[in-house]
Amino acid sequence: MHSEPQVGGALARADAVAKRLVRLEVNGAGYELAIEPRRSLLEVLRADLGLTGTKEVCLLGACGACTVLVAGRPVLACLTLAVACEGKPIVTIEGVADGHALHPLQRAFVEKGAVQCGFCTPGMILAGKALLDRNPHPTAAEAAEAISGNLCRCTGYAQIVEAIVSAPSLAADTPGQPLPGTLDSGPYLMPELGE
């Protein structure tokens, strides 16, 4: 009798392929992991590294929710084998802000109301960041093209495009400062209920 295979779990099928020791660099930190070749980067980010900001949706490359940057390129973590990422720096949504100071693109998303339910947002931010890294002053058409592989079911595309186009102007003022709305300051906290 075989035990049921468990991905990443302690029980392994008798014929399971040996794990490989892989060094990944995620958001500037190095990790050494023993992983099966069949595991996607998405699984490893979420299950092994606890980086659940990268979202799992279609698992077929058709929604963009799991977009991350690998060696600076926007790719789909659900279709990327983790073992193939050895030696290539990976950036996830957790690595976009500088501590509590949001990236200008994140600030632009807040200011333009580009976040609705929020589930597509990490993928949108990474797709937008990949564009801004290559083209610091994109047009609205270029921004729309850059997020054309990312689905938003709240259909807030107009605000997302606006946010990407306006991000460069935010980059110009005081980078690295904490923003209103981050955990350090309070304008977005719920006010106390009065009597």
């Binding site: 014929d15 099966e36 069949r38 595991r39 998405l42 699984e43 799992e56 084998l81």
Partner: peptide, 9 residues
Amino acid sequence: MQALPAFRY
């Protein structure tokens, strides 16, 4: 998550 079938890499 639907895992991929095992393979050598």
